[in-house]
Computed example of a mutant assay.
Amino acid sequence: MQTNERKTIVSELTTLIETGNAHVSLEETINDIPADLRAEIPPSLPYSIWQLLEHIRITQWDIVEFCLSPDHKSPQWPDEYWPEKTDSVSDEKWTETIEQIKKDRKRFFDLLKNEDTDLYAPLAHGDGQNIFREALLIADHTSYHLGEILVLRRLLKCWKNS
């Protein structure tokens, strides 16, 4: 793959994960959520904003670890990918989760930007996955759940014009 082509692909994947292109970014989606609404579960829905955010963190961490560590053991699906319901989420825990998402995102971007990383070669420890696919998986999974967070914010009347 030519250097310019690779740089373009890495840049597009990074932008897709960071900003979502066609949807609101993680940062904008979770900005200014009142602490008392983080764990609120609207009627007829199974989860809170907190549970969705923590699920994004766990899943992204698992994908990044899978890409970087051949010996990585994924959490048990679905129980270990979803946090339990809670009555409240401290500012400390909220910030910790957001910072971990950003840290794992950076680790993945470092892998993408590393010229020695073959974006298309199957990972030796996987069953056909490659780094390009895993980047799309992070973007797709995150955007899906960010959309859900926005719906919850609208239902909880804590989104723009709601």
Rank of each mutant, 00 (worst) to 15 (best):
F108M: 09
W82E: 06
S90H: 01
E92Q: 09
E92T: 07
K85T: 08
T95I: 08
L119H: 14
W94F: 02
W94H: 05
D118S: 15
E99K: 06
T95M: 04
W82T: 05
F109W: 07
K106A: 12
N114R: 08
K103H: 13
E99A: 13
V89M: 06
V89S: 03
L119R: 15
V89Q: 03
L119G: 09
S90L: 08
S90Q: 04
L119P: 09
P83K: 01
W82K: 01
F108R: 14
I98E: 08
V89F: 04
E84V: 01
W82N: 03
W94D: 12
R107C: 07
E92H: 06
K106P: 06
E115C: 04
Q100F: 08
R107K: 12
D87Y: 00
D118P: 12
T97F: 01
L112H: 04
W82Y: 00
D104G: 04
E96A: 14
V89T: 06
D87T: 02
Y120N: 15
K113T: 13
T86W: 01
W82A: 03
K113G: 11
P83H: 01
D116F: 07
D104N: 15
D87G: 13
K106D: 11
Q100G: 05
T95Q: 09
E96P: 00
W82H: 00
L112S: 12
D91A: 11
E99C: 04
D104K: 01
E84A: 03
D104L: 05
D87C: 00
E115H: 10
S88P: 02
E92S: 08
T97L: 08
I101R: 11
E115S: 10
Y120R: 15
K102S: 15
Q100S: 14
D91Q: 11
P83W: 02
K93D: 10
D104R: 02
N114A: 11
D104W: 00
D110Y: 03
T117N: 06
Y120M: 15
L112A: 09
